[in-house]
Simulated scan of single mutants.
Amino acid sequence: MTVYLLRRLFQAVLVMLAMSVIVFVGVYAIGDPVEILISPDADQIERERAIQALGLDLPLWQQYGTFLIRALQGDLGRSFVFNEPALQLILQKMPATLELAVGATFMAVLIGLPLGLYAGLKPDSAGSKAIMAGSILGFSLPTFWVGLMLIMVFAVQLGWLPSTGRGETAQFLGLQWSFLTRDGLAHLMMPAINLSLFKISLVIRLTRSGVRETMLMDYVKFARAKGLSPARVTYVHVFKNILIPVVTVVGLELGSTIAFSVVTESVFAWPGMGKLIIDSINVLDRPVIVAYLMIIVMMFIVINLVVDLLYSTLDPRVRLEGKS
């Protein structure tokens, strides 16, 4: 296991290095922040002084070299707009995005797995057909439209849930979290539901197809022939074997949810990283954009590593291959 972890760590370093080059060059190519950050009324001397202060007078390779040296020291640059460390700005917004993404993923697993299991075990029933029809709607409906409908129904007409903001927060591990308070949980409910609809549909269809495929396997037929109860066959022999693809997809979707929760955060005015990156793109705040993308890449690497480790827990064959 130690050798495996060291190998994955080495691979992660190579991926981070390659992505840093791609991200830095891509952000450099999207525009000149000088045209936005510096007033048009400024004279040439003031413009040159500002360009030099921001380090934009250096060639691209030198800017990247400076960024790489500072990144190895934990410094991902200083925001052009806020004049604060970019990493600090992102970390301030990260708890809000993380709890929204984790809440949406938790809902997807909690709702999608039982519904997909039922749809796979009873494919011809009316309930199964209704579940699959609902999953199509979850794939098809635009996220922003669903968010507006949720606000209209549950916030405006019924008045059950607040429509915007994060609500009251409580401190845990030095960070502020809204799910620890009743008011914060009420604020979290609608954005998490809106963000989880697509993932619920994905988990339902993935679980259903896995159940239908597994039910035809010889070991399931043998378990039935031994006289095991349907519940034991389902939860011991079927359910455990379908978890591997579900864990893979859910893990990757968690990373995607963290990275692409911008629409939901905008609709519900959720103060997460999504709003910060949109504002930074509008003003071409390069350090914040680069730092955000690098953190997202690191999150995907960590999530993939966790998924691979879960494989060895769910499937003994993976452990045996690793030992060999």
Results as ranks from 00 to 15, higher is better:
165 G>H: 04
227 G>R: 12
287 P>I: 02
191 P>I: 04
154 F>V: 12
211 V>S: 02
222 F>C: 03
21 V>C: 07
28 Y>M: 08
308 D>E: 11
8 R>K: 11
315 D>S: 06
108 A>Q: 00
125 S>K: 03
276 L>C: 00
246 V>I: 12
308 D>Y: 05
105 T>W: 02
188 L>T: 09
197 L>Q: 08
105 T>P: 05
324 S>R: 15
151 I>M: 07
78 R>T: 15
109 V>A: 11
166 R>Q: 14
244 I>Y: 05
196 S>K: 09
261 S>R: 06
172 F>H: 04
321 E>D: 09
66 T>H: 14
180 L>A: 03
68 L>D: 07
22 I>D: 01
146 V>N: 02
79 S>R: 06
200 I>G: 03
153 V>M: 09
251 G>T: 07
11 Q>N: 12
134 G>A: 03
303 I>W: 10
223 A>M: 02
305 L>I: 15
121 L>W: 13
125 S>W: 01
122 K>G: 10
250 V>K: 04
304 N>P: 04
220 V>P: 01
222 F>E: 10
120 G>H: 05
43 D>A: 05
255 G>Q: 06
142 P>Y: 04
223 A>G: 05
300 F>R: 04
294 M>K: 01
173 L>H: 02
209 S>L: 00
115 L>M: 09
55 G>V: 08
255 G>T: 06
89 L>T: 08
190 M>H: 11
35 E>N: 13
276 L>G: 07
8 R>Y: 05
147 G>K: 07
282 N>E: 14
33 P>D: 12
186 A>H: 09
152 M>V: 00
289 I>P: 06
88 Q>Y: 13
73 Q>V: 06
254 L>F: 13
258 I>R: 00
209 S>T: 09
158 L>I: 13
41 D>M: 15
32 D>F: 02
206 L>A: 06
205 R>E: 01
2 T>G: 15
132 M>Y: 04
256 S>R: 12
188 L>C: 01
307 V>T: 12
231 A>H: 11
96 A>D: 04
112 G>T: 05
169 T>V: 15
126 A>G: 05
282 N>L: 15
10 F>C: 08
234 T>I: 07
70 R>W: 02
54 L>K: 00
50 A>F: 02
188 L>K: 09
186 A>C: 08
44 Q>K: 07
9 L>R: 03
252 L>V: 07
8 R>A: 00
186 A>I: 03
156 V>D: 14
258 I>D: 05
184 G>W: 04
246 V>T: 05
269 A>H: 07
54 L>D: 01
